[in-house]
Design a protein around this nucleic acid. Structure first.
Lengths: 231, 231
DNA sequence: GTCTATAGTGTGATAGAC
DNA sequence: GTCTATCACACTATAGAC
């Protein structure tokens, strides 16, 4: 790294301060969203929380939707981390089990973040490529990474001839994802899926979508539901 | 029916007119929601569309959320009708196939109505029983009827010993529902589930959740995805 | 029952002074 | 870079005249 003169150092400090404020805005936004949901994150409320004027926000983010996009990126990174923690599991079925559970746990633990990531209405001007005012990029753009981790496991299962379905592995991956998302989404909406705890639905879904690891199957032996808590 | 005097007839006419206007409000609301989503259904816009003042609406509906509840009820009735059209199918697996397809078709054909029914955030004051300002009743209250139609089929499968999973039929029903909902929800959000058409995901999911009817399985024979259109 | 008028509150975003 | 002040809207819901 080259030595810098006083001039460069000063601009460097400015850049750091600037970046620090941006981080602070994101930090507070993250907490508000986590507590009250993105819908109730207003620029005024946010400005008051960080003790700046609303106008100051627009020096760091082009729009409210721009903040949404940043938070979504954070969320996707966090979810991907939760997945990466299990990539070391050699057996693809066991790995899928761990990742599936991690996915639903993530969604139930941070419902509002999950909502922002996966349950926001698509951009109205969807036809236009790229990104719109609300920061809706292509939803898959970030989720694709985590999806591919699931798909990888299915590819391995197929290669080992342990995938009963004849469908393409990527199709199975999307099917399982849809299943997990459905569990989270319906649970988040409150009264839906009233009978069965999420944990059990996850087990059932994983078993439905690929042959379980030997000795891992039939965790729930009887037809009666367990009394495991919903979350 | 008793003859009515002129007095009763007049009040009868009033009641009919009143009911007619209520229906008209609902009709226009339904169309606006279908086209632009419930979020953009404002009382002003609605009033202008029916050529009344905004205040007139409040004589027929307690609030905007009250309209939402009415539309939700309509939607649930419509979905239940789509299900009832298949109750005559004797074989429970074939019936589930038809109902599952009908469910996803409904969701993709009327995305905004589906959103209103199943993808709205739960009421903030959920702890309080009953209904809130936004007309969010217990989401399951109406969906329960359709869910029980799915559960019935699983009960029959279990009775015929054709349900491989040992889980409770109602748990399987909720699992399958979650799966179908996930497909619709992710497809509605635009870019998610990019590779696989919804129709194929539905087939895969149905096959995953219960033994398919003989001769019906393996519609998709190869690992490559078909080029069936997404909707 | 229906209207006009408006209260009351919120919003995102910007212009222009400093 | 930050602020004040404000634009230009939107919204639900109600009061009170007719």
């Amino acid at each position: 790294m080259p030595r810098m003169g006083p001039q460069e150092r000063r601009t460097e400090q400015r850049r750091e301060q600037r970046q620090a404020l941006r981080e602070r805005i994101l930090e507070v936004s993250r907490e508000i969203v986590k507590r009250e949901g993105f819908a109730s994150l207003s620029m005024r409320k946010l400005a008051e929380a960080i003790d700046y004027s609303p106008a100051a926000l627009y020096l760091h983010f082009k729009s409210r939707g721009d903040i949404a996009r940043a938070l979504r990126r954070e969320g996707h990174a966090s979810l991907r981390d939760a997945f990466l923690a299990h990539t070391s599991i050699a057996d693809p079925a066991a790995r899928l089990n761990a990742m599936g559970r991690a996915y639903v746990e993530f969604g139930l633990a941070e419902p509002e973040t999950y909502r922002l990531m996966f349950m926001e209405p698509a951009s109205s001007a969807e036809a236009a490529a790229g990104v719109d005012d609300n920061g809706n990029g292509r939803a898959a753009e970030s989720g694709a990474a985590t999806l591919s981790l699931i798909a990888d496991a299915f590819v391995e299962l197929r290669a080992a001839d342990r995938l009963p379905s004849r469908a393409a592995p990527v199709a199975c991956a999307e099917g399982l994802w849809a299943n997990l998302h459905g569990i989270v989404a319906l649970k988040l909406n409150g009264a839906a899926l009233p009978e069965t705890p999420a944990a059990m639905l996850v087990e059932l879904s994983l078993d439905a979508w690929f042959a379980p690891v030997k000795g891992t199957e039939l965790r729930f032996s009887g037809p009666d539901r367990s009394d495991t808590s919903t979350r």
